[in-house]
């Protein structure tokens, strides 16, 4: 099954890429966008049909490698389970 992971910088961490993009959007007239944060999107294909197990596996992968928890948060989404 598919597992989606969204990694974002923690609130307390300055996000220069988000800030620069926000500035560019403002220049383009997007005045109602008040903030931009840039993160990463990672898609896993895992060999299980058990959402709980898939979630657990993804969390372990995030803790060990995919996210740097000193400065990043991660959110695990299982698209199949949210649509049913």
């Amino acid at each position: 099954m598919q597992v989606d992971i969204v990694i974002t910088l923690r609130e307390s961490i300055l996000d220069p890429k988000g800030k620069a993009s926000h500035h560019a959007l403002e220049n383009l007239g997007f005045n109602e966008i008040s903030a931009v944060r840039i993160g990463k999107f990672i898609q896993l294909e895992v060999d299980t049909d058990d959402p709980a197990k898939a979630r657990e596996m993804a969390a372990a992968a995030c803790e060990k490698l995919l996210a740097n928890t000193v400065m990043e948060n991660y959110e695990i989404r299982i698209p199949d389970s949210t649509t049913t």
Binding site: I13, L14, P16, K17, A20, N68, V70, M71
Partner: peptide, 15 residues
């Protein structure tokens, strides 16, 4: 990253 030293590294402030 190996936790042999503390802290973390980010993109240069000015990018």
């Amino acid at each position: 990253e190996a936790h042999l030293l503390p802290g973390t590294m980010m993109a240069n402030e000015h990018l």
